[in-house]
Amino acid sequence: MIEASSKTQARPTVRPGFRLGTISWGNWALGTHALLVYLFLYVPIAVLVLFSFTQDQFGTRWTGFTFDWYARLFSNDRLMGAALNTLYVALASTVASTVLGTLLAMAMERTRFRARPAVDGLLYLPIVIPEIVMALSLLAFFAFFFDIIEFVTGATLRRSLTTVTLAHIAFSISFVVVVVRTSLKNFDMRLEEAAADLGANGWKTFWRITFPLILPGIIGGALLAFTLSLDDFIISLFLSGPGTSLLPVEVYGRVKRAITPEINAISTLMLMLSMTLVFLSQVLQRRR
């Protein structure tokens, strides 16, 4: 009995190697496969970046190096306007969906209420529902309510950046909730108990302990919402009104007509922005 009670609680944390025996055929096959997949994923991206610097006016051949297309881009008011609109929508929807999503995540992880399973389901729906269905239902919804408002008040409302922003908030919230909930789940509840034990009331515990520790999660959620909004094309296409162009919609319209090196350039810039955002969110995770 005395011996038996002295069990140690060491848990193996080292990842065991996956040995396939002495034959390395499997490793070779996997390695070659991986190389091909990475080529498949990156050759198109590399081509896109490369051809944003080509002198060829069709943008599909290498005829020499130039920065011209980037220069033209920045003097193209229409594209720049669309880019600014996109940034504005992304920022606004990020702020709103981060606040709403964080509150929801707190409610889901830290309180008990009877409708929990139903709310849980509602929160997952915007993630799994096909984007096009969400887009066209929002389109119908706004048209429907604009009609009612016109009938009641006589005021005519039109789709605008506001409708796009409202729609982006609706589909970003759930993603923010998922990210923030994960960091709340990973949060050791005993830290809150420890704070209470040391004399901190609920409010102080939240701001001194909980918030600083889930902040990376909240920022991660915000970055996700920002990226989702920047990248969104389908909802933007359906919900932006006439005259309020957004960058992905603008690019789509041009691409449908022809490939141009200018599009290569703006696509490259969008790519760089995405890479920066991924990098930021990864750095954030590693710091945890």
């Binding site: 050759v43 081509v47 990248d231 690019v251 995405s274 991924v278």
Partner: peptide, 21 residues
């Protein structure tokens, strides 16, 4: 990380890259 980049990159841009090819 190399998987995450295309994961987060605009779908339209990535489709467009194939048009060039």
């Amino acid at each position: 990380f190399l998987i995450l980049i295309p994961f987060w990159t605009n779908f339209l841009v990535r489709t467009y890259a194939w048009m060039i090819i």
